[in-house]
Design a protein around this nucleic acid. Structure first.
Length: 202
DNA sequence: CGCCGGATTTAA
DNA sequence: TAAATCCGGCGA
């Protein structure tokens, strides 16, 4: 029951701050929904309107409003009309910023995971933001919800030492300066990381 | 293994 | 019109 208990709920104060500083500290933490527990192995930071890759770049809308909310809430949005993406809001209230959870390793809840994701190889159950959303059964109702008191919860987990770091994925539309930022972090050795995969040796 | 197109909501 | 993507089909 102490503060290092991997299964304890993670208090929002533990990850409040700029997404580009806090994001790597979310690697190794758990996401729980009912019987399903996933271990985060890949994240990306998205900051405010000054980040041309961020949903906040055109200002506040009904969809992205949670990005301006207090840390410790989810920002869930529909991508390409099909995929539900999970972000963890970390920036201070009134400041836009969130961390996209891109991939995770299954830990518990195999039956439910298989029912949502089908008979796929284990490594494909949550290896990508759309797959992860499907594995957790996410929907519009999760956006803006608390990640410490809601149905979806972030747990303490076990930190990942020296994660791989590289540029973000799927942001060709952003300015060169923002495309170049190394705001993607992953546990390089994990088979659950999405593509493009980090180089094996580094 | 790689490339390609379709799915389908949101918002510029 | 393009998007913080995935999947199945096809060819090498």
């Amino acid at each position: 029951m102490n503060a290092d208990d991997p299964w304890a709920v993670l208090e929002p104060g533990a990850y409040a701050g700029r997404p580009s500083r806090v994001a790597p500290s979310l690697l190794g933490r758990y996401i729980r929904r009912g019987p399903v527990v996933l271990r985060i192995v890949e994240v990306e930071a998205y900051e405010g309107p000054e980040d041309s890759a961020s949903h906040a770049r055109f200002g506040r809308t009904a969809r992205n409003a949670p990005m301006w909310g207090p840390p410790g809430r989810a920002y869930v949005y529909l991508c390409y009309g099909i995929h539900w993406m999970l972000n963890v809001v970390t920036a201070a209230e009134g400041v836009a910023g969130a961390v996209l959870i891109r991939a995770a390793a299954p830990v518990q809840g195999w039956d439910v995971l298989r029912s949502r994701r089908g008979a796929r190889p284990e490594r494909e159950l949550a290896s990508g933001p759309g797959r992860l959303g499907q594995a957790l059964g996410l929907g519009a109702g999760h956006s803006g919800a608390s990640l410490s008191r809601g149905e979806l919860r972030l747990l303490v987990g076990v930190p990942v030492a020296k994660p791989w770091r590289g540029p973000r994925v799927g942001i060709d539309y952003a300015r060169a300066r923002d495309r170049a930022r190394a705001w993607r972090w992953a546990e390089a050795a994990s088979p659950h990381v999405s593509r493009p995969r980090p180089p094996l040796g580094g």
